[in-house]
Each structure stands twice: as C-alpha cells, then as structure tokens.
Simulated scan of single mutants.
Amino acid sequence: MVREDGKRNFALRETDGGEESVYSGNTPRQAALKAARRLDPGSSEDAADRTELRLREKGTDKVHIYDGWAWRETAPDNKPDWMPSEITEANVSKKGIEHLES
C-alpha cells in the first residue's frame, strides 16, 4: 500500500516467517538499502559478507529478495560536525520476487 507521501512499507522477513522490522521507501531497493546498513559491516566492500534480505511489501503477497552487504568507510572530508569519522556504507543486488501462497 502506498502512503500519502508515496512511500511504501516493507517488512523484513526472518527465516521462520516472522516480521520484526519494517522499512519504508519509494522503491523496494531503497528499503533494502536501509535494511542492509544494519548488517554487521565488513572491513571493505569486497570483504563484506553477503546476506539474503527478504522484504514483504505490506498489503501485498510480494516478497522482494535481495543480497545485501555493508562495510565501514572513512567519512568524507567535507562531512558535517555531527557525523562520525567512520560511516557504514551498504549495497544490494536484487535476486527476484516471490509471491506468498494465500
């Protein structure tokens, strides 16, 4: 379901089917990137572990499946004062869509 501001809600599905976390975004990829930033970061993008993320779009039976990974990186020189010197970056790669059985 699309909210008034155009964003949709996506529930992160656990292996047992539970849905503890909800991420919002205009696209499933945007929500997957938010979920990936919460993974344990590796020392670099190449060294980061890939984790499967399954996001069910609220109000539908669609489950968007991504591989996600996160890594630590030095913040840019022009960072604002409140930003820490080391930040977490993330990326995702879409694997496909599944439909839940009713």
Rank of each mutant, 00 (worst) to 15 (best):
V2D: 12
V2A: 03
R3M: 08
E4A: 13
E4G: 04
D5L: 06
G6L: 11
G6V: 01
G6T: 05
K7T: 15
K7F: 14
K7M: 11
R8Q: 14
N9D: 14
N9Q: 13
N9V: 13
N9F: 09
F10N: 11
F10P: 12
A11R: 09
L12M: 14
L12F: 05
L12G: 11
R13Y: 03
R13I: 13
E14Y: 04
T15E: 11
D16L: 05
G17R: 13
G18A: 11
E19R: 14
E19W: 00
E20L: 09
E20N: 04
S21V: 09
Y23H: 10
Y23E: 11
S24H: 05
T27M: 13
T27I: 04
P28Y: 02
R29M: 06
R29T: 15
R29P: 03
Q30C: 00
Q30F: 07
Q30P: 01
A31R: 15
A32G: 02
A32K: 06
L33V: 13
K34C: 03
K34T: 05
K34Q: 15
A36N: 04
A36T: 09
A36G: 08
R37T: 08
R37S: 13
R38D: 11
R38V: 01
R38C: 06
L39D: 04
D40G: 03
P41Y: 03
P41S: 10
G42Q: 01
G42T: 02
S44H: 10
E45R: 14
A47C: 02
A48L: 05
A48Y: 03
D49K: 14
R50E: 15
E52T: 13
E52H: 01
L53W: 07
L53R: 02
L53V: 10
R54D: 00
R54C: 04
L55M: 09
R56C: 07
K58G: 09
K58P: 00
D61S: 13
D61I: 09
D61G: 12
D61H: 12
K62C: 02
K62L: 15
V63C: 08
V63I: 15
H64Y: 14
H64L: 02
H64M: 04
I65Y: 10
Y66L: 04
Y66P: 10
Y66Q: 00
Y66G: 07
D67P: 00
G68C: 04
G68P: 08
W69M: 06
A70Y: 08
E73M: 05
E73F: 01
E73L: 08
E73D: 14
T74Y: 08
A75T: 08
A75I: 12
A75K: 10
P76Q: 10
P76M: 07
D77Q: 11
D77N: 12
N78C: 11
N78T: 03
P80G: 03
D81Y: 11
W82F: 10
W82Q: 11
W82R: 09
M83S: 00
M83F: 01
P84R: 05
S85Q: 14
E86W: 10
I87H: 02
I87T: 12
I87L: 14
T88F: 10
T88H: 02
E89T: 05
A90M: 05
N91R: 15
N91Q: 12
V92A: 04
K94G: 01
K94C: 04
K94V: 01
K95D: 07
I97M: 05
E98D: 09
E98N: 10
H99T: 15
L100C: 03
L100V: 03
L100T: 06
S102R: 15
